[in-house]
Design a protein around this nucleic acid. Sequence first.
DNA 1: GATGGCACTCGGAACGTACGAGTGCTAAGT
DNA 2: ACTTAGCACTCGTACGTTCCGAGTGCCATC
Lengths: 346, 346
Amino acid sequence: MSEERRLEVLRAIVEDYVQTREPVGSRVLTERHGLGVSPATIRNDMAALEEAGYIAQPHTSAGRIPTDKGYRLFVDRLAEVRPLSAPQKRAIETFLSEGVDLDDVLVRASRLTAQLTGQVAVVQYPSLRLSGLRHLELVPLGDQRLLIVVITDTGRVEQRFLDAGAGIAGSSDGVVLDDATLGELRARLNAAAAGKRLSQLSGAFARVVEAVAPELRHIVRSVADLVVETLGEEKEERIVLAGTANLARADMRFEQGLSPVLEALEEQVVLLGLLTEMAADGVAVRIGHENRLDGLAETSVVASGYGTDGDTVAILGSVGPTRMDYPGTIAAVRAVARYLSRVLPG
Amino acid sequence: MSEERRLEVLRAIVEDYVQTREPVGSRVLTERHGLGVSPATIRNDMAALEEAGYIAQPHTSAGRIPTDKGYRLFVDRLAEVRPLSAPQKRAIETFLSEGVDLDDVLVRASRLTAQLTGQVAVVQYPSLRLSGLRHLELVPLGDQRLLIVVITDTGRVEQRFLDAGAGIAGSSDGVVLDDATLGELRARLNAAAAGKRLSQLSGAFARVVEAVAPELRHIVRSVADLVVETLGEEKEERIVLAGTANLARADMRFEQGLSPVLEALEEQVVLLGLLTEMAADGVAVRIGHENRLDGLAETSVVASGYGTDGDTVAILGSVGPTRMDYPGTIAAVRAVARYLSRVLPG
DNA sequence: GATGGCACTCGGAACGTACGAGTGCTAAGT
DNA sequence: ACTTAGCACTCGTACGTTCCGAGTGCCATC
């Protein structure tokens, strides 16, 4: 009863089950996969695999299906890399590079992933916390409001309104921000902040605050606070979904129904937490109960970071039933993540 | 066999069926609704209603269910307005007014609608075509690119990059845009465009093009084109969805499964077309096959426009099974649309 | 260690039956 | 002219029964 063959049996079970969605018995196993031994032998191996927790029987007289643990072993040790076909690669590249701006590119990436995997794609916007500041713009809107536009080196453009009440002209010092003053502030802030990460912004801004005329300090501080806040806010982390309709396809029965799955996907904050947790080199896989969310107990998540020059600035993933085509999904996610990294604004 | 009672019977059937999701027979009809006549009488009325196409039998020995035509009559003539409770209204108002910017408000509006109706909420972003221009900002990004930020009077902030290749410094005239020149252009463009609608922009910009120094015309024209294009693009129309998980609830069986429904909801362009078609005074209702989309054949859409001072700038709606609580849904959609209009940036 | 044989389990399909909800019709009542 | 009671009829569903076969574990054998 060689250890090797046992693993081979597990692989066969996973591959067969993924394809047929039926519990697989010892007979078909010998027939459909070239194992070269008799069903009885397989049965012994299966008993051992079941004992070890890699497979299970739905009911007494049925075949075996892989457990989460079984899939895990499969993914870690048995899955063979299956590179995409050249035409597929070209299609990805073309489709992504046609995006006109960040929103567009990310939407395209999510659709693409959903289509390649036949599952639900999840794409996180480049995290503001991991982005550097490229440019800061101050736009006066009447006397009462200031529009602050923050452009990151990851291509995100965020804007915030700063109300008079929050410190423009409203405070007792009654400073009027003419164009020249504004231009100077803009230049100073940009000089101080250009290329810096959020963690370095506070300090840089503090020095600007000290450098400007005293009557401007208040407003500069307001602007600085707002920018730091904008770049740090959890709720500004955004997510794009695509392919939810795939969940409802006939071949995707979930024991618990798809309500819990859809609910989990709507909880952007929680979903984001899961993705963030999965950040790792290359592609990460969470199988079934491994991801803590109850709603996703019957699903697996395959995710990969993406970002310019090796810097991961966000995560992209695919969510499907634990019974999924892992090699294919992993290949697709990795490919999209790579091309996405390449297409992103350098 | 009074006409009046027949309508009363139809109303009873609709209300009963909506509540129980079971075909309703003549007996329960007399028992549960105070119709004061015997089942046999009801049966005659039902035969007439069926003849007229308002109700149908799923199979021979079952009760009746309303047809699309029956729901239509119900909505048009029988549904009683059911105002929301005061606490509900307060909750809406509070929840919406806590939104910090347009994105936030619209997300809140969609969640709210989904929660109130127990269905899927669809909220369109204020249409750029129906918006006026509030402010135009030109931000130089290095020598090669210009960031154009468009702020509409509906609170949307859109940005576009204008590449050197597209006409900044790259063209043979080799104009350099220093800050002063840029400031002047900004001022001129804003003066010309402030408050104008898309349809009036082209002309206004054309006059600016003529007024500036010849060597600047090329670039001004590029900017003007990009702005006009941005405000006019179909693909810039955006939609927010919420509550898709509600579709999967046990009480929402669709004959065809929810695949087609989810697919239809993912087709933002088509969905947008449907909503746009539904623009009308007050709340509009599309029942079952009335909306042309195959995927939504088993659903009804309840929608209402919203916007400041009576101007409809976008649509908000709720999508659910034809067997839905029309009065409740209509009340919810109307209420959210009204409060949303009030909360929007004036 | 692998294999063939065998008794055993058990889920699901197939079938028949009984039940009951609901109908339409007719004849009688108001 | 409606309304109603009575009644025969339809038919979908729930239920009980049977039956089959896939799949297993175990044992004796190679």
